[in-house]
Design a protein around this nucleic acid. Structure first.
Lengths: 238, 238
DNA sequence: ATTAAACAGTGATGCAGATCACACAGGCCC
DNA sequence: GGGCCTGTGTGATCTGCATCACTGTTTAAT
C-alpha cells in the first residue's frame, strides 16, 4: 500500500496553487515531521461520507484530490449545500476545535484522496506548536468569511436570478479571461444548483433558459461558457 | 479619568456569567498582565459606531457593558442584522486575524463600555503567548457556529413565522422557567426585528398580532411574555 | 403645550416563485 | 429491443408576502 496512498502531506504544497494560504504548508520542519506521523492517507469512492452532520468530531480531513459536497438539512428534509470543497481544503476543523458535532455532512462527489488527522493528535499538536495554532486561527477566520458571504447572499440577494448570477460569477473567477469570458465544467445537477441558491429545481431550469436567451451564457456539452462577467455583475447589484 | 474608565480587563471575568468561555479570562498571570498593558478602555454613547463594514481592521473590542448591533448592508440599502452582542463578546476578531476589512458594522444600541486592543499588539501577543492563540481559535470557531446557525435559519426556515418563532426562542433561552414560560425585555423596534429575520416591518407587525392571538406570547409594556416554548418549537420544526 | 419625528397597525393589490403535473431525453442493465 | 432510472424542460395554478398607502400612537424636542 504505497503510492499513491503514501503521499506525503507536504507534497500537497507543491501542487497547490495557493500553497502559502494552506493550513499545513510551509510549517517548520519539526511541525511538518510531526504532522506526517499523525496523518493517515486514504482514497474515497464517489458517494463516500467523510462525516455526517451531528456526529461527534473524530478529526479533520485535508483534501488532496476530488470534490466534496458540504450540506446541511432540516428535519423536514430540505437540504442546502453550503460549499463545494476541492483540493487543499480542510474539512471538519470547526467541529474539532470547538468540540461540537460536525455541523455539515461531507460527501465525496467524485473519487478522491484525503489525509485524516485525528482529533486528539491535532489538539496536542496545537499545544506543542504555537505556529500551528496561529495557522488554524487564520484558517478558521477564512472559514468564517466564507460563511459570512453565504449569509449575505441568502439574506440580501433578493431574487433567485441574483443568486444564480452570483454563483456563476463565483465559478468563473478561477478561469476568467481578460475579456470577461470564462469556461466552466458543469458538474452539478439542476437539483444541486437549486440547493446551493435556495430555490427549486424547476426554477433553476428556467433560470438556465432565461440566461441563455439573454446571452449571458451558453452550454456546450458539459461546459458552461460565460459570455461576459460584466453583464452578470450588473444583475447581482449587491 | 479613573473609575469607571480604568476598569481592569480582568475584572470583567468576575462578573461574566460564562467567564470560562471568554477570550481573555483565566489566562496565565503574564498574559493577563500583558493584556492590561495593551488594552484601552472607553465609554461609548448610544449610536456610536465601533467600526464600519469595509474599514481596514484597527483592532478588536471586548464589550464590558451595553448592547451592540452588528449589521451588513447591500448596495441598494437593504440591511440585515446578524447579531446583537452584549457584555463579554469580542468584536472584530475575524477581521483582525485574517487581515481583511471588517465584514459588519458595529453600532452601540445603548451607552456602554468597551476595551479596545489594537491590531498589532494583539498579533504580537498571539505569537508570544500560545495560550492566547488557542483561545482565539476557539473563539473564532464559536463565531463560526453562530454564523452557521444564521445560514441554517436563512436557508432552511421557510416562512417568516418560522424565523420569528426561532428568534423568540433564542431570546427566551436565558430567562426560561421550568414550565417553559419566559419574560424578555423587548428592546428592538419592529423594523429591527424585520432586519434580523429578513422580512418587512409590516410583516413583523402582523406576526406580533398573529402570535398574540394564538396565545404564543403577550406584551406587557416593554416586556414580552412567552407562554410556552413548546408551542413555539412546534412552529419551528427545523 | 405644540409640533415634529419615529414607530406601529391594517387594508388592498399584485406578482414572483413554489407547487403540481406532465412529457421527454439519455444512460444503463438484462 | 424494452424496461427502468435519473435528470431535464415547460405549462397551469395557487399563494404568501412585498409593496403601497394610509391612519393612529408614542416619544422626543423646543
Amino acid at each position: 500500500m504505497r503510492a499513491p496512498y503514501g503521499l506525503n502531506i507536504l507534497d500537497n504544497c507543491l501542487t497547490c496553487p495557493l500553497r502559502s494560504e494552506h493550513l499545513f504548508c510551509n510549517l517548520s520542519p519539526q511541525a511538518g515531521q510531526r504532522l506526517n506521523e499523525i496523518k493517515s492517507t486514504a482514497v474515497y469512492p464517489k458517494g463516500a461520507m467523510l462525516f455526517i452532520e451531528g456526529q461527534q468530531p473524530r478529526g479533520v480531513f485535508v483534501l488532496c484530490s476530488g470534490k466534496v459536497k458540504l450540506s446541511t438539512s432540516s428535519r423536514e428534509g430540505k437540504t442546502i449545500i453550503t460549499k463545494i470543497s476541492d483540493s487543499g481544503d480542510v474539512l471538519g476543523l470547526n467541529a474539532v476545535i470547538s468540540n461540537r458535532p460536525y455541523e455539515v455532512t461531507a460527501e465525496m462527489m467524485e473519487p478522491g484522496q484525503g489525509n485524516f488527522i485525528p482529533r486528539d493528535s491535532l489538539l496536542h499538536m496545537l499545544k506543542d506548536h504555537p505556529e500551528v495554532a496561529i495557522r488554524i486561527a487564520q484558517q478558521l477566520s477564512r472559514n468564517y468569511y466564507t460563511a459570512y458571504e453565504e449569509i449575505r447572499t441568502l439574506g440580501l440577494a433578493a431574487s433567485p436570478s441574483e443568486k444564480f448570477a452570483k454563483l456563476l460569477l463565483s465559478w468563473s473567477t478561477k478561469t476568467a479571461q481578460s475579456d470577461g469570458s470564462a469556461l466552466v465544467k458543469l458538474t452539478l445537477t439542476h437539483e444541486e444548483v437549486a440547493e446551493i441558491i435556495g430555490t427549486t429545481r424547476e426554477t433553476v431550469s428556467r433560470l438556465f433558459s432565461e440566461f441563455k436567451k439573454k446571452q449571458l451564457m451558453q452550454l456546450k456539452g458539459a461546459t458552461l461558457v460565460i459570455r461576459s462577467r460584466m453583464a452578470l455583475e450588473k444583475i447581482v447589484q449587491s
